[in-house]
Amino acid sequence: MDRANYTTVQGDTWDIIAYKQYGNESLFPLLINANPQHATKVRFDAGVTLFVPAAPEEISEDLPPWKR
């Protein structure tokens, strides 16, 4: 995924946004780190624009450690 912006809808939370953008709610720290001005928010109002950094490349557990 390329870098992009996301505009919140009423009631969005960090994990919901991470799931919508990355398909994985556990990546929410990426969003918080990229948007420190909103780090204390728990639920968003509609219309907040957030920066969405590119998702990290997945590392296959099937690869030997030196190729991960």
Rank of each mutant, 00 (worst) to 15 (best):
M1H: 01
D2F: 02
N5F: 06
Y6W: 11
T7W: 00
T7R: 02
T8D: 08
V9K: 13
V9D: 05
Q10F: 13
Q10S: 15
Q10E: 15
Q10R: 15
Q10N: 14
G11L: 08
G11R: 04
D12M: 10
D12K: 08
D12S: 08
W14P: 08
W14E: 07
W14C: 02
W14Y: 09
D15A: 15
D15H: 05
D15E: 15
I17N: 00
I17Q: 00
A18T: 04
A18E: 01
Y19H: 11
Y19Q: 10
Y19I: 03
K20Q: 12
Q21N: 12
Q21F: 01
Q21E: 15
Y22R: 07
G23Q: 09
G23V: 02
G23W: 09
N24Y: 06
N24W: 09
E25Q: 15
E25L: 12
S26K: 11
L27H: 00
L27V: 06
L27W: 05
L27A: 01
F28D: 07
F28N: 04
F28R: 08
P29L: 12
P29M: 10
P29C: 08
L30R: 05
L30H: 03
L31G: 00
I32P: 02
N33A: 14
N33W: 07
N33L: 11
N33C: 08
A34I: 09
A34R: 01
N35W: 01
P36E: 11
P36R: 14
Q37A: 13
Q37L: 02
Q37G: 10
H38R: 09
H38F: 14
H38P: 00
A39I: 02
A39H: 11
A39F: 04
A39Q: 13
A39K: 13
A39G: 13
T40W: 07
K41L: 08
V42G: 09
R43Q: 15
R43T: 11
R43H: 12
D45V: 09
A46F: 00
A46S: 10
A46T: 12
A46N: 10
A46W: 02
G47A: 12
V48K: 01
V48R: 03
T49V: 13
T49M: 06
L50H: 00
F51Y: 11
V52M: 02
V52S: 01
P53C: 07
P53F: 07
P53H: 05
P53W: 01
P53Q: 05
P53T: 01
P53G: 00
A54T: 08
A54P: 05
A54Q: 09
A55Q: 04
A55L: 04
P56I: 07
E57D: 15
E57I: 03
E58R: 10
E58H: 05
I59M: 11
S60Q: 05
S60W: 00
E61V: 06
D62Q: 14
L63G: 00
L63F: 11
P64L: 12
P64D: 13
P64R: 06
P64Q: 09
P65H: 15
P65T: 04
W66N: 10
K67G: 02
K67S: 06
